[in-house]
Simulated assay, not measured.
Amino acid sequence: MTNTELWSSAAWLASATAWLDERLAAAGRERTGPVTQPHLRLWGTVLTAPTADGPVWLKAPGPENAFEVPLYQLLTEVAPDWILRPIAADADRGWVLLPDGGRPLGEQVSEGELPAALAEVLPRYAELQREVARHVGELLSFGLADMRPAALPGAFDEALDAVGLYLGRHATDDDRAALRRMAGERATVEAWCERLATSAVPASLDHHDLHVWNVLMSESGRLQFYDWGDSVIAHPFTTMLVTLGFLRSQYGMADDDPRLLGPRDAYLEAFGDLGPRDELVTELELACRVGKVARTLVWLRALRPQGFENAGAFQRAPLESLLAVVAASHLDLRG
């Protein structure tokens, strides 16, 4: 049985609904309407239900992303101002019950306002990363992948082999040739990692999918970061691969577009005590490049258990992410 078959089964839904009701009752709240399932993906599902105090959300990540539940619990302790605080969590089941945090930032500001909105948000995320950097050992114990610079050359080798296995009989001759070319880039990747390993910026939590649809804004204007299921431990600047890469791709920006550089510089300012700005910019660009190795493995973590045939529109995402390591731009998300 695939994850999606399990999560859509009557037995699973009944069990999850019962747990939701129990946890609400323990928190002094009561469900006022039916439970619905707005999200059902290969890597996780979400249920939602109305209450007198607003909707609640039960998130059930897949087994390979189950670290998200204890991660929420840790973030509640060390960075409570920037995250949704769980109503309840069950690490054994891999379930977390969350309050409503408002609508995504991307729905609430216009296209032209997004860069300025990100420039306001990203220093707060940087503060979170600096707080969480003291807890890397705990994060690793939860099962988050180690994608720190010293581990990435090995991760690059793993990604090459794993993408080939994942594609299997679906790989074309062009795919196999592209993987051979990528294998020839190992020395370059290793050199980038060695440079990053000398950084004064400590490793921390990389959300790895931080874009304007994973930042929630309440009616009062409170901003909170959401959806930690792709997280890894890495050089913190790796986060900017998706944050800035998504913005660049969505709106067709060049790497030197001021609308891109503004959010980048606002983020880096929070690390200004750790090195000259030019060095931090260089580290960010390298972190984004090697972060594509992590992105490849994150895609594989989500898709491989279900197989290539069940991956739908995401079938080639692992290969494309790996080929992007040596793309023209450090912010290219696909090769």
Rank of each mutant, 00 (worst) to 15 (best):
S110D: 12
T2K: 03
R31C: 14
R295G: 07
R41S: 11
P258E: 03
C288S: 01
V290D: 02
K292I: 05
F246Y: 15
G335P: 09
F237I: 01
D332C: 08
G245Q: 12
W228Q: 07
L40M: 13
T198P: 00
V121I: 14
R181C: 10
H330P: 15
E285C: 05
S218P: 14
R195W: 02
H207C: 14
G252M: 11
M147Q: 13
E185D: 03
Q250I: 00
M182G: 03
A162S: 14
P305N: 04
P50A: 06
A328R: 06
A133H: 13
T76P: 11
L105G: 10
A60Q: 13
R222Q: 12
R85V: 13
V78G: 11
E22G: 11
D256R: 03
S218Q: 04
A151Q: 06
L160R: 08
E111Q: 15
E77T: 14
L284H: 01
G221V: 11
G291I: 02
D206C: 15
D100E: 07
L333P: 09
P202V: 01
T36W: 02
A145R: 15
E120M: 05
E320L: 14
P55W: 06
A294I: 11
R186V: 06
E64I: 09
A187E: 15
W299V: 00
W12H: 14
L300V: 09
D227P: 13
